[in-house]
Amino acid sequence: MMPLMTTKGLSRHFGGLRAVDNVDFALMPGEIRAVIGPNGAGKTTFVSLVCGRIEPTAGMIVFDNADITNLPAHKRVRLGIAYTFQITSIFANLSAYENVALPVQRTLTDGRSKGQVHAGVMEALERVGLADRANVPAGQLAYGHQRLLEVAMGLALKPRLLVLDEPTQGLADSEIENFIGLVREIASEATLLIIEHNMPVVMELADRITVFEAGRILAEGTPEAIRSNAAVQRAYLGGGDD
């Protein structure tokens, strides 16, 4: 099977800092991949390169057999790469409805979905359980709901690759349980790349785990293999971080 997305020698330097350093990475269609690693390891920078928010210093990104290294971010989204922000980035002054209407009308314009904006919006809001909050300004939603709204916006883009950057950060335990169910559901339609600090969530969800440290991939494998990997335990799992 061909990978959905690969990177070759992908690097991004900030001044002298090698935030992402020569990363070769491959993601298979349909998998749930978790990316873990200590703070500042370069996880957000790595996925930002993949979705085009920032430009690489060197290296190459291939999505669905096409070189997208120089493709602007908005075109990558239209190819099916969706990104949800680590720091909640919604349209605070607009209603939840309007927040989701934007991605819905994008897929309609691109011909990647059919029907009415209204139906698409309500469907996405229902999937994350926010349908009854449709008219509430997004900034007035509870924090957990704002995170869910982010996910709804990502979902509404009908992604083939959905990148979730620390989606459970700040969620209550009860919310996390629902969230795991939601992710499973999404995974039946899209490939998922999830940056996550919450290890139980990672162990429960991920097909494979990639461990980042200091801009490089330290290890990669199944949850069991990663759990028993000595280097990972030293760098991360045993680091008291989680």
Partner: peptide
């Protein structure tokens, strides 16, 4: 219109609008 919705989105959060697939 849909175009108007994008214009307002640009005003509210241009980076987010871009990451929703719009050529801002």
């Amino acid at each position: 219109s849909r175009f108007g919705r994008v214009l307002i989105a640009v005003r509210e959060n241009e980076e987010r609008t871009r990451m929703l697939g719009y050529d801002t």
